[in-house]
Design a protein around this nucleic acid. Structure first.
Lengths: 362, 362
DNA sequence: TTGAAAGCGATACCAA
DNA sequence: TTGGTATCGCTTTCAA
């Protein structure tokens, strides 16, 4: 055994060659025995398995990746791990991609395009075979790197005007617009908008809100209230308290997500404001607690899991067929779920379009 | 350029050699220019940087890892990504380890020791330089692999009786015990226990609960109620509803975490039960919404962030010094936060020990 | 400061 | 079915 470049931990690391020596076969046979057992005779397989166990052999993935030029890794980019939305989405990705033999490399861009750029560089350095990204706005360099990489790329959660590869999303602007119309239709006029950090998706929903308000001659921007924090129940309570202090409690509140909405509802109770009589509240995403809140929380249901499942399946397909995309964009839509927190204020003037189960068109 | 083993995507991949050729220097100089710029003259550095940009070079990490025998990766094992507790913890790990130049490889064991074993194998195959694991119960093979790997290992969240390496935790049994005593001291006798899946930490807290109840001659196990689901607000509501249906609503409820507690509180409101008059409710972890719930939720505050920060810092230290551990276990303790949801039932018989700010002893 | 040569540990290709 | 040998792309070692 030659050892020109011995490292301190050398003793601890067992290599394929050592296993091969112990089993009295060649290295390549050991490699095959581990990856395609049926290609190796039972006799040798037994000897090899024994040696592997005895020596405690663990294959070196770096070597394998280098030699095979395949990483079996898929890069996943999310803006934060601190939001259930993305946990559910990740879960779905896991469930499809792990059984297919891929490893996920999850990176958190912390809502920053610069961090995203660094992350993309790192992931490409790892030679990920595909990339699934939350969001559609990237730095020019990020776009260039992704285009150059010639790997399947899926952008999710927002409609991309210029998709890099495939785009699986819901129309956030339209959702914000429809949700606002839903409140307007129920007779609310002074409608506030609560949000935490102004990330891409929040801004799109806000744009939809402003558009709907503007169409009725109402000023939307004026009534938006935000703090640059993760949108949590506590933040919702805080924002509501702040509205109350400034005596600017509106007739209805459209919250950027159900966390803010629930926090706002809690604070209302504390302040002696009744929901929906004094303030109606509408959330977003229809998180698991919305239906069982008290009063139950109206919300816009989104399909995060399906989004993840579909993104993952598409990647697998693209990886297999290498065929050009049949379509660039898949619009998964959403659905407004009317519950107690937004009971109609005045007798309705128009039919509620069957509970507004509106879906973005595919 | 020889190409005995050409791969389809070959054209797309720029190598160090190609950059070197383009910059008219040797490969090793390019390598140095990228990793230790100050070791290369400014002239060459400029030429190299230009070539890198022009060719869109992205280093192949597998090759780098193989050649340097260093992965710069740290393995992180969590039971789920679906719980804020672990999101906060991960966030803390990120914040310490990324700036130190390490990459995190996060694997989700889904509360299964078998999946954990697979994950450990994968991580060791990636030659992670250290490992940070939630939990202390592993399969024998997992333990063996970890011991053999001769890398820093940190087990977190629970006290380990036989730590593999370092152990940073809070005493879950004691916390369950103390929390139960807190309720008993406030005059509650029929105390129920709500939990979701019976994972290691939940079972330890339950054990503490049972012990405290048994000491007063009360039967704890009898009053525990669980469903094998992630512990969410919705589950809390469901469990509470189920207690009510069976007419087994107790005087107080100790919930495995604040999610269940909040869900139970919501359901109480729906059922017309007053908190704390009809049922007192105590949560665990003191999540961000506990203090702003209405009524505010009593809880046992744990220090997840510090746990992560400390684990990460310890790993860095172990990686640097390679010195034997000065101590095997760090007990971070916890603190009971009494709020409205557990107001005293009867006039108190003993002093509440200053609000029970009890911390496990270090 | 720069470079030549020799691996790192696995797999692909081809031959036996 | 099994094995020999040439790589994969980068870094280490040593020398200039």
């Amino acid at each position: 055994m030659k050892k020109t470049r011995s490292k301190p931990a050398d003793r601890a690391r067992v290599t394929l060659d050592e296993v091969a020596a112990a089993a009295r076969v060649s290295a390549i046979t050991v490699s095959r025995a581990l990856r395609h057992p049926q290609m190796v005779s039972e006799e040798l397989r037994r000897r090899i398995d024994g040696a592997v166990l005895r020596l405690g052999y663990v294959p070196n993935i770096a070597a394998s990746r280098l030699a095979s030029a395949r990483s079996h890794a898929i890069g996943i980019l999310v803006p934060t791990l601190y939001n259930v939305i993305f946990s559910e989405y990740l879960q779905a990705l896991h469930e499809v991609l792990l059984p297919a033999g891929y490893q996920l490399v999850v990176v958190n861009s912390r809502y920053s395009q610069e961090e995203e750029e660094k992350a993309v560089r790192t992931l490409l350095g790892q030679r990920v075979e595909a990339m699934i990204i939350v969001g559609v706005n990237h730095t020019p360099l990020t776009r260039r790197m992704l285009n150059r990489a010639r790997i399947p790329v899926v952008e999710t959660f927002q409609i991309a005007h210029q998709p890099i590869g495939l785009n699986i999303a819901l129309d956030q602007v339209q959702a914000g617009y429809d949700a606002t119309c839903f409140l307007l239709d129920r007779g609310y006029r002074r409608i506030g908008f609560l949000l935490g950090q102004r990330d891409e998706r929040a801004l799109e929903r806000l744009a939809g809100f402003s558009k709907a308000m503007a169409e009725r001659g109402l000023d939307g921007e004026q009534l938006a209230m935000s703090l640059p924090c993760p949108s949590t129940i506590a933040l919702g309570a805080q924002l509501m308290a702040s509205l109350h202090e400034r005596k600017r409690v509106p007739e209805a509140l459209f919250c950027i997500d159900d966390n803010l909405a629930l926090g706002a509802m809690q604070e209302c109770r504390r302040l002696g404001l009744k929901v929906p009589e004094d303030v109606a509240i509408l959330g977003f995403h229809d998180l698991e607690f919305a239906a069982c809140a008290s009063p139950s929380l109206s919300s816009v249901a989104t399909r995060r899991q399906e989004l993840g499942t579909l993104a993952a399946r598409s990647v697998l397909e693209m990886l297999e067929t290498r065929a050009p995309l049949r379509r660039k964009t898949v619009n998964l839509g959403y659905e407004i779920r009317a519950r107690e927190s937004t009971a109609s204020r005045a007798p309705e003037r128009r039919q509620a379009k069957g509970g507004h189960p509106r879906r973005g068109e595919p």
